[in-house]
Design a binder for these strands. Sequence first.
DNA 1: TCCGGTAGCTGTAATCATTACAAGTTTGCA
DNA 2: TGCAAACTTGTAATGATTACAGCTACCGGA
Lengths: 140, 140
Amino acid sequence: MTPSFAELKQNLKAKNINLSFQRLKVLEYLVNNRCHPSVEQIFSDLLKELPTLSKTTVYNTLRILTETGLVRSMTIDDNETRYDINTKNHGHFKCNSCHTIYDFYVDIDNFCSDDLKNFKIENKNVYFMGICPRCLTNKE
Amino acid sequence: MTPSFAELKQNLKAKNINLSFQRLKVLEYLVNNRCHPSVEQIFSDLLKELPTLSKTTVYNTLRILTETGLVRSMTIDDNETRYDINTKNHGHFKCNSCHTIYDFYVDIDNFCSDDLKNFKIENKNVYFMGICPRCLTNKE
DNA sequence: TCCGGTAGCTGTAATCATTACAAGTTTGCA
DNA sequence: TGCAAACTTGTAATGATTACAGCTACCGGA
């Protein structure tokens, strides 16, 4: 369930979103860096390649991509929003020690509650926090 | 699973947290207002009762209460952190129309993934977004 | 080929939640 | 009673995000 760049590009065209050069680069970055980067990370990395890039453009692009549903934004206990390509059926685990965010498989689709019978659910999120294996072994 | 005020107070003493007057009031507020209030809401409501209250105190208190695990902080797609008394086994649903946050029952404890075999999980969160029944009917 | 308009990009300024800090106040304990 | 530590308060700083205004690039029609 990891959509290819070509698929995403087509998906955008179908939604009448113009793929400008800068937007292409942001999208490309998200496809190649599935590490839940922050705006700051995306911006400073792309700046090496596009010295005239504006941070505002990154914000704008991410907003557009998020609105179309191609990209998912999330804030896990941080003051920084993180972004990733929207793939289904996975939760996020954030390590409280190294702050890395891991994906893990979870069957969210079949995960519902009777309390929400009359609710229209548009978006499901699962995130855990704790210590990742790497940090656990480093402590010993 | 809604702890009483007396229980919470005892819980705090056990953790060597001094219950100052202001902290008491913040805790009391959270017990009486289980609507996931923001700092701004807590502060401005308590200000009526405690005109000398400082917003910094509210922030400090919430940090302490969160660290002890009595209070849970969450940011659902907002730029404002919300707080509630930490009760187990429930997820949050945020209405995209009226922005109300609902609790719903969910069996989080039995909700794990093989991918996280070697992770130490300290905290589990489930939140959904969509439209609540009230807003759904109002639209018609 | 030229022109006009629109969409997109850029950079600065403003906003707003949160945190840092320093000084005043209260509390607990000897 | 007095001291030290813990709390509170208010202001200033920080830092992510948004607003905005001007500039640029592209596209369609004459």
